[in-house]
Each structure stands twice: as structure tokens, then as C-alpha cells.
Computed example of a mutant assay.
Amino acid sequence: MKAIWETAKEITLQRIIMSYQLRSAALLIPNQLDGLCVIVTGSTSGIGYHTARELAFAGAHVIMACRRVDAAKGIAERWKEDADDRKTLHVEVMELDLLSLSSVKQFAAKWDQRGKPLHILINNAGILLLGEPRQFSEDGLEKHIQVNHIATSLLTLLLLPSMLRANSARIVNVNSVGHLWGAVEPKSWKIGAEEERKFSSMTSYGSSKLAQLMFLKALCTKLISMAETSVLCVAVHPGIVKSNLLSDGRMRGFWMLDPSEGARNVLFCSVRADVQHNTTENFAYYSQCKPGRMSSLAEDPKECLRAWDETLCILGFSPNGYLSEIIASRSFS
């Protein structure tokens, strides 16, 4: 019932609420983000495109992490041409394919070689294979769970040392109200596993977003327990947005937000100082630029820890020792 109610609220009220939000004062003040380094995944289209663009024009050093490198380079050049002559945009492109865990590791290794702090990581990239049969990646994982959760979580863990180098940092995961429809069933994540129920792409999508949410909350709890308070973890539902995931028009409706409007929610969680005041142990779930309601599973610390353990086991990391090793070995410049 909670899932039905929250989804119905989004459909009926989001256009009214966001119209009000969009009439408010400008979110980003030019140059206020000078000196901040931001990685945005999936930034060649949709929410990621508008998020990366606004951050770049606000003065941040933006890294567009995406599969379509040539397209991203063209976009970055257009942004630089659009910028005021007195303003230099700091935008670069790095290749990242979340359907390949090897690509994630290569990206993180290249970034780590710089030895620079990372201030904001925006995990925006995701997939929804609506109406399609169950599919697996080259890593043997169901594609929704790999892109939306496993690969995203791996990237977060591998970039964590860079975020700990910053005085303060944020991890912003673009989540979904669809997580309310999900269930965490790790034994169904891998190829060869039998499905407990008939496969549904929407249920798989929701489950991947729920696992992502629970993992992020567990990460934050563990960091706090280790007295690491510099990293703020925020999951954000950007609204039900006109999606570019599908080209046949199935994800369109007059009540849906444009990608630029959906990006407003992500930007809010990425840069607003007052977000931290609405966190519990440095974690928050946001919807419509304010704290939202999560699944009861995500509210359960034991369930979140289970999602954490299962994820790290799949990645080949020690559930209890990985973070301790990072914190013990890290050094500040």
C-alpha cells in the first residue's frame, strides 16, 4: 500500500510541487562551486546532462564519466563555446561503462593516479529495460542489478579514498520511487540462478534501486562507526521524468518532469548546505527537494547490512575488512 500511495502522490502532485520549486530563487550562484571536483556518471543525456552542465557553469571541475566518449567530448566543447568569454569551463571526459566491472576498475585506477580529492560523486547512470526478458552482463550479473547497484557501488567504494581526502564530500545516488516496489533477493542476481517469481523488468529495476539505497545507507553507517564523518550520503528520487531510456514514447506523460527539472532535485542534494541538517548519521533520502519516505526495508539496519554483505561478497571484498583497510592505509596530502 505504501508503494501504491507514494507512486500515486508522485504522479498527481509532482508537477504542482516542482512548478513552485522552479519559481524560487536560482539554485546555483555563478562561481560558487569554484575549486570543487565533481564526477557525474551518465552525463551525455537526460538528468545527468543537465546536472553536469549546471555544475560546470557554476564553476566546478566536472568529469563526465560515460560510455559515449566522443559524444561527451562534443557536448563539453559546446558548453565551453556557450560560456561567457570571461568564464572558463573546466569539463573533461573519462570513459566508464557500468556494464563492465573491469571498466569501473580501470576508471577508478586512472582517477586514483591523480591523487586529488573528490568532493562530489553523482551516481546518475542507470538502465530500465522495460518489457524485455531477463538479461545478463559479461560479468554474469542481471543487467539492472549490475548497472543500478553493483557497478555503482563498486565505483563508490573505489573512489572513497579520494573523497576522504576532501575536507567534506558527498555521494549522491540518483534513486527512484520505484525502489518501493523492489525486494532484495541476492540469489537471483547471478546468471544461472532460478527466479523465485516470473521475471518483471519493472520489479527488477525497483529491486536494483532498493539494493542501491540500502547499500548506501549501510556504507554511511559504517563510516560513522569508524568516526569518518566527512562524507555525506544522499539518495535522491528526481521525480518521474520523461525518460530517454526508451525511444518509443512509452515513458511520456503530461505530468512528467523534463530532465532539466529532474536535475533540479539532484543539484539540490549535491550542493545545498541545508541538506546536511536533514540527515541521520550523515544519510538522507530526498524527493522533491525535501526528505522523502523510504521503503521499510531500507529503514531496517539489519536488512541494509545484509545488502552490504552480499554486495561486497559479489565484488570479492571483505564485508567487514574493506573499509577498515581503506581508512588504515589512506594518507592526506
Results as ranks from 00 to 15, higher is better:
Phe317Arg: 04
Asp309Glu: 09
Met294Pro: 01
Arg23Gln: 12
Pro133Val: 08
Ser176Asp: 14
Pro30Ser: 01
Ser137Tyr: 10
Ser230Ala: 14
Pro291Asn: 14
Met226Ser: 12
Asp85His: 01
Ala65Glu: 04
His237Met: 07
Ser287Phe: 03
Glu196Ser: 14
Glu138Arg: 14
Lys87Ala: 14
Gly115Met: 12
Lys143Gly: 06
Leu210Ala: 05
Asp309Phe: 01
Ala71Ser: 03
Ala284Asp: 09
Val40Met: 08
Gly115Pro: 08
Ile327Asn: 03
Val236Lys: 07
Ala183Cys: 13
Leu55His: 01
Asp258Thr: 14
Leu297Gly: 00
Ile122Thr: 07
Gly253Pro: 01
Ser24Cys: 15
Pro133Thr: 03
Tyr286Asn: 04
Ser208Gly: 10
Thr156Val: 06
Lys222Ser: 08
Thr44Cys: 07
Asn167Ala: 14
Lys187His: 13
Arg272His: 04
Ala26Leu: 08
Ala3Arg: 05
Leu267Phe: 09
Ser207Asp: 07
Leu130Lys: 14
Tyr322Asn: 06
Glu194Leu: 08
Arg86Trp: 05
Lys2Pro: 06
Thr12Gly: 14
Met226Ala: 14
Lys209Thr: 04
Asp84Tyr: 03
His119Ile: 11
Ile122Lys: 00
Asp34Lys: 15
Leu121Ile: 05
Met294Phe: 05
Thr152Ser: 13
Arg252Tyr: 13
His90Gln: 12
Glu194Thr: 12
Leu180Asp: 05
Ala52Thr: 03
Gly253Val: 02
Cys269Trp: 03
Leu267Lys: 06
Glu310Val: 04
Cys233Met: 08
Ile145Pro: 05
Leu141Lys: 09
